[in-house]
């Protein structure tokens, strides 16, 4: 009985989040937000996460290099180290990492900010002053998170190649040229597309969840706290599920069109 109630409320919550997402899209079609506000938000989101994403990217590259070195030394295929490590990062680890980073920083920040605006009646005040909070407040933040996640993905990948080169050099004595040589061959267009699509999907999930949670906050300061925690948890779960789904769908699609996963 109890678990049914919980399941029911979870489905309720997902449903209203989807409706909220549709509303944002409608607002985007009808009344786009001001460009200044959007650029300001993109700048803010990017700057907020620049250092952490860069650092994390660097260490992910380093970790990948270590892992692949251990495997590939067996086969004497160390020349492919750079290509494989980078491919794995682009396709899978990079987008996932960026999304988690953003969920922790920007997601939490955005839902806290919007939640505070909700409980101090600022959002009501905006409606009373003749503006649409979806258009003026939500939309720029929503779009900014999506745009910024691409910038951050780019940065994270560059840093991860840096980390890979460093560790590849230290651990496996793979030179910089050696490391970079096979990257163009192994990192195909399809794997870059794969990474970009994932990054986009994760960013949409994050942006929807954190604006939705912030916008629907109730109950004072502790409501804001709750919204922040819920944002973090829901986005992480959502992202992991979406990751599995996209990998699965991509796999099926590739099988259908190409015949076998390369």
């Amino acid at each position: 009985m109890n678990s049914l109630v919980i399941l029911n409320s979870v489905i309720d919550e997902i449903g209203s989040a989807l409706l909220f997402f549709v509303n944002i899209l409608k607002t985007l079609m009808r009344r786009p937000c001001s460009r200044d506000e959007l650029f300001q938000q993109i700048w803010k989101v990017t700057m907020q996460s620049l250092v952490t994403t860069g650092l994390a990217g660097f260490f992910v590259g380093a970790i990948m290099a270590v892992q692949f070195t251990l495997q590939m030394r067996e086969f004497g295929a160390l020349g492919y180290l750079g290509g494989l490590a980078t491919s794995a990062t682009v396709r899978e680890v990079g987008p996932l990492l960026i999304a988690f980073m953003l969920a922790g920083k920007v997601g939490a920040f955005t839902s806290a900010e919007l939640g505070t605006m909700r409980v101090t009646e600022q959002l009501d005040a905006i409606r009373c002053l003749g503006a649409d909070p979806l258009q003026e407040i939500i939309l720029p933040r929503f779009l900014a998170i999506i745009c910024a996640s691409f910038f951050l993905l780019g940065l994270g990948l560059v840093m991860s190649i840096g980390g890979g080169i460093l560790l590849g050099g230290l651990l496996a004595q793979v030179s910089v040229e050696e490391y970079l040589r096979h990257i163009p061959a192994i990192v195909t267009l399809s794997s870059i597309a794969n990474g970009l699509v994932k990054c986009f999907i994760f960013a949409v999930i994050l942006a929807t969840v954190c604006t939705y949670k912030g916008y629907t906050t109730t109950g004072g300061a502790k409501g804001v706290g709750l919204a922040v925690v819920n944002t973090a948890v829901s986005t992480m779960v959502g992202i992991v599920v979406a990751d599995w789904l996209t990998s699965f769908i991509a796999d099926v699609a590739i099988r259908a069109f190409v015949g076998s996963p390369f």
């Binding site: 101090t120 009646e121 009501d124 005040a125 409606r127 009373c128 003749g130 649409d132």
Partner: peptide
């Protein structure tokens, strides 16, 4: 909501908290 915009021009609300 759109039709209400006209009403909100006529009816100004001052909130309990300043909500600035």
């Amino acid at each position: 909501e759109i039709e209400y915009l006209g009403i909100r021009k006529k009816c100004g609300m001052v909130f309990q908290q300043p909500a600035l």
